[in-house]
Write a protein that binds this DNA or RNA. Structure first.
Lengths: 141, 141
DNA sequence: TAATAAAATGTAATTGTTACAAATTAAAAA
DNA sequence: TTTTTAATTTGTAACAATTACATTTTATTA
C-alpha cells in the first residue's frame, strides 16, 4: 500500500479525515525505512506541501500512533523516531551511527512466545515482546 | 555495596574523584529500584546536599554511564531514566503507569545467546541483547 | 452549497538536557 | 600541613524537541 488511494482508505478505516498532509506524512513514513524523526518527515513533506507546519507533523504522527498505524520509539539520543507498523519486528540499534533498523524473525517470535507461555513472570502479563539488539554493522551493506 | 566505603572504592576504581555529590547520587540510584529520572535523583539527593545543582546530577549520571557503572534508558515519555548496572537484565514496561522494572532471567539469556550464535543477522553483530516487554501488572504485587 | 466538526497553522510556552565560565574542592606534591 | 593543580561543581543561560492554545482553514455530511 504505497499509493494515495490505499493510504486514504487506511485513514478512513481508522476514522480519520483524509488530508494532503496526512497522506504525505504517511508516504514519507513509508518511504524512509530507517525510522525517521519528526524533523526528517517535516523536511521531506515540506517539499510537496510548502506551507506545512511542524506542529502538523507532530500532531499527525501522534494521531497515527494513537490509531495504531504507526509506532513511536524513544532513542538514546533523546529524539523520538517513527515507524509504520507492519508485521511484528524487532529493532537493531547501531552503536556508531544512531541508526535503527527493523529486524524480522518469525522463528524467534515463536521461540519467545513459547517461552513466555511456559514461564510466568510474577504479576506481569506481557502484551508485546520486542528485542532490542545493540551492536555494530560490519562494513558492507 | 550500599555503604559509603564501597561506593567510594568503586568510584576510585573507575578513575573518578570521590565527592559527596557522587556518593549521594550513587546511593540514590541504588535506593530507587524503579529507574529514577534525573529529576527524581535531584530531589532525593538535594535533601542531603542542600546547594546541589541540577547540572551536577546530569553530569554525574553521564559520567557514571560513560564509566559503565550506570545505564541510561530512553523512555516513551521522552525522559531518560537511570539504572545501576548489576547483572544482565531486561526491562518490563508497564502500560498504565510509566513504570519500568528489571527482569532477570539467565535461562532466557542463554536461550537467546544460543539462538544468535546459530542465526546470523546480515551484517550486524549484536553486542547486547535486551528484551523490551510491554504489558500490564496484575493487581497484587 | 452550506454547515460543522475536524484538522492545520503559527506562535509561544514548556520540558528535559546541555554549554559554558567562574568558583570550589579532592587528591597529589611539597 | 600547606600548596598546587586538575577535576568537579555550580549557576545561568542556551538549546532542542515537543506540546498548548487560539485562530484559520478544510474535509465531510447533510
Amino acid at each position: 500500500m504505497h499509493n494515495i488511494q490505499e493510504i486514504a482508505e487506511k485513514l478512513t478505516q481508522s476514522g480519520l479525515k483524509v488530508t494532503p498532509q496526512r497522506i504525505a506524512v504517511m508516504q514519507a513514513l513509508m518511504k524512509f525505512h530507517h525510522h525517521p524523526t519528526a524533523e526528517e518527515i517535516f523536511r521531506e513533506v515540506s517539499q510537496n506541501i510548502p506551507g506545512l507546519s511542524q506542529t502538523t507533523v507532530y500532531n499527525t504522527l501522534d494521531v497515527f500512533v494513537k490509531k495504531g498505524i504507526a509506532q513511536r520509539i524513544a532513542t538514546d539520543a533523546g529524539v523520538m523516531r517513527y515507524d509504520v507498523i507492519a508485521e511484528a519486528h524487532h529493532h537493531l540499534y547501531c552503536l556508531g551511527t544512531a541508526r535503527v533498523e527493523d529486524y524480522f524473525d518469525p522463528e524467534l517470535d515463536k521461540l519467545l512466545r513459547d517461552y513466555f507461555e511456559k514461564k510466568k513472570i510474577n504479576g506481569f502479563r506481557p502484551i508485546d515482546i520486542k528485542l532490542h539488539l545493540t551492536g555494530e554493522f560490519e562494513e558492507q551493506k
